[in-house]
Amino acid sequence: MTDEIRQIISEHGRLAVDVASLSDDADLYQAGMTSHASVGLMLALEDAFEVEFPDAMLKRSVFESIAAIAEALETLQKQAA
């Protein structure tokens, strides 16, 4: 899952650095992701993983790292199953 997340971040996160250089726990905002870019990332994640993030999940902390995004997606996929 994290490989796919990394791919989507590289396309939509508009980071200041190469996503390959970041650990799963690295702070994406500190790596240059803006609030504006994060919305594009969220839309792309919803599309790719066929989920909808509820409002309670649409917050900075849920998208601040690859690990946090993976955890959120797993939570949603479990709920859907």
């Binding site: 609030s35 504006h36 919305v39 839309l43 919803e46 909808e52 993030f53 509820p54 409002d55 649409l58």
Partner: peptide
Amino acid sequence: ANLLLIAKE
């Protein structure tokens, strides 16, 4: 406008 693309309610 950007937030409206993703917020649900």
